[in-house]
Amino acid sequence: MDLGEWVVELSTGEQHEYDHLVIATGVQPVQLSDGHHLAGVHVLRTLDDAVALRKSLLEASSVVVVGPASWGRRRRRLLASSGAR
C-alpha cells in the first residue's frame, strides 16, 4: 500500500489505484435473512463485490445502507457525494 501514490499492490504484484481505501480486517458481514439474493442487494467483502456494487450504483436512483451506525454514516456521505440519494 502506497498512501502517497494512492496505489495498492496485491501479493500477485498487480497494482490498483484508488480514490478511497477501506481496510476491513477479520469482520464477517451480517447478511439479511431474507432478500440477500435479490438484484441490487450487495454484501461488500471482496474486490468483485465492490465492482458489482459500483456498477449497480451507476444505475441506481436511490440507495439504502445497512450496517453499523458509524460505518453507515461514512458510506452515506460517500454515496451522497457521488450523486446517490
Results as ranks from 00 to 15, higher is better:
R76W: 12
R45S: 13
L79I: 12
R54A: 09
T46F: 01
D19T: 07
S56H: 08
V65W: 02
R74P: 02
K55L: 15
D49V: 04
A80I: 13
V51M: 03
L79D: 08
H42S: 10
A84N: 14
S62N: 04
H36I: 11
V27K: 07
H16Y: 15
V8M: 02
Q31G: 04
W6K: 15
S82M: 15
D48C: 10
E14V: 05
D49Y: 00
L47E: 09
A50Y: 07
V41Y: 09
H16V: 02
A60N: 06
R74G: 10
L57R: 05
H36P: 00
L47Q: 13
K55W: 10
L38I: 09
G35V: 09
W71L: 05
D2G: 13
S56L: 07
L57I: 02
S70Q: 03
L32K: 08
E14P: 02
V27R: 05
S11K: 15
V30I: 12
D19K: 06
S62G: 00
Q28I: 04
S62R: 10
H42T: 05
G13I: 02
R54L: 10
E14K: 09
H36V: 07
S56Y: 02
S11Q: 15
G67K: 01
S82V: 14
A69D: 03
G13F: 00
L21T: 05
A39D: 11
P29N: 13
G67S: 06
D49H: 07
A80D: 11
K55A: 15
V51P: 07
H16P: 10
R73P: 08
L79G: 01
W6E: 11
A80P: 00
G72F: 03
T25F: 12
V8E: 00
R74N: 11
V22Q: 01
L79N: 01
D34R: 14
R85G: 10
A60S: 05
G40F: 06
L21N: 05
I23H: 13
G26K: 03
Q15L: 07
R73I: 13
H37Y: 00
E59Q: 15
Q31C: 10
L44Q: 03
H16D: 01
L79H: 08
S81G: 13
R73Q: 11
G35K: 06
R85T: 11
T46S: 12
R73S: 10
R73A: 11
Q15C: 01
H20M: 00
Q28D: 11
E5Y: 05
L10P: 03
E14H: 04
E9R: 06
D48F: 10
R45W: 00
G35F: 09
Q15W: 00
D19I: 00
S61V: 07
S33F: 07
R75S: 13
G83E: 00
Q31L: 12
L44V: 10
T46M: 01
W6L: 14
V66C: 11
T25E: 14
A39V: 13
Q15V: 02
Y18R: 08
S61F: 08
M1G: 12
A50T: 02
V63H: 01
R54M: 00
I23K: 14
Q28S: 09
E59M: 15
G40H: 02
S56I: 08
H20C: 07
S33C: 09
